[in-house]
Amino acid sequence: MAILDESMLVGASGKIDGYVVYKVGKKTYARKSPRTIANPRTGGQTAQRSKLPGAQTMHRAARGSVLEQVYTIVAREEERLSGYHWFLHANMNVFGVDDYVDYPRLMLTAGSLQLPFGMRQVAADAGQLEVAWQDNSSTVTAQSTDRLMVAAIFDNEPYQPVVLENVRGCRADGKGCVYLPEGEWTEAHLYCFFGTVDGKRYSPCMYFSIRKS
């Protein structure tokens, strides 16, 4: 694949002399046209196809939540076509056959806002998670008022990310706490991230998990 920054083909799209030219955001790319696949049902092809439905299902479940807003913003920052395209590009490889999801590798959020330094788990049980960090609000991409936010995926709803409401802490506090809802779950996958007060910028996430005893 090549980026055509200084080419007469910038802005073009379609097939040209054995290459496919396409545009993503403000950039134009060219790649060789794919060869006809003699056996589209090989193990590799089947595994690759199994990734898409899982990624699509999880993105669809995030619609209407803060996560959808995060994806729209990060797509604009990275010059992607849409939040949907960003999510697929970032996460396709964490999904697999038989409903497999590699939750620690899942990028549930991203963005230009910086995570605090040294973010770590302090205490955890089935009801809450306590985290701590170093306040880095003096840096350019961080503010003291940035608030801690937490999205969760519970094992009884493996494709349903939920942004939790009962979360306490801002960057200047150096610590925060999230209270988990009751329910018929055994394991909770938690993604801690930060957002500005005006909701215009968000950070990447830090993964933690909690299991009921």
Score class of each variant (00 low, 15 high):
Thr141Gly: 01
Ala110Thr: 05
Leu81Asp: 13
Gly64Asp: 04
Ala2Ile: 14
Lys175Arg: 14
Ala12Glu: 12
Glu130Leu: 12
Met149Ala: 14
Ser203Asp: 06
Ser209Leu: 02
Asp17Met: 11
Pro161His: 08
Phe87Ile: 08
Thr145Pro: 00
Ser144Lys: 10
Phe87Val: 05
Ala12Gln: 14
Gln143Arg: 13
Asp173Ala: 11
Leu4Tyr: 05
Val101Leu: 02
Ile153Met: 10
Leu180Arg: 02
Leu190Thr: 03
Thr196Tyr: 00
Ile3Pro: 00
Cys205Gln: 10
Val131Met: 08
His189Gly: 03
Lys26Thr: 14
Thr42Gly: 15
Ile210Phe: 02
Arg41His: 13
Gly43Glu: 14
Ser65Gln: 10
Ala124Ser: 14
Leu88Pro: 00
Pro204Met: 05
Val163His: 09
Cys192Asn: 03
Gly18Ala: 02
Tyr207Pro: 07
Lys212Phe: 09
Tyr29Gln: 08
Ile3Cys: 08
Pro40Asn: 08
Gly43Arg: 14
Gln45Asp: 05
Ala55His: 01
Gln45Gly: 15
Ala172Gln: 11
Arg120Met: 13
Arg41Val: 11
Gly96Lys: 03
Phe193Leu: 03
Glu79Lys: 13
Asn136Thr: 15
Gln69His: 12
Glu78Met: 11
Gln45Val: 01
Val70Asp: 04
Tyr19Gln: 12
Tyr29Lys: 12
Ser50Lys: 11
Asn156Pro: 03
Met206Val: 15
Pro181Ile: 03
Met149Thr: 08
Gln69Leu: 10
Gly43Tyr: 09
Asp198Ala: 11
Arg31Val: 06
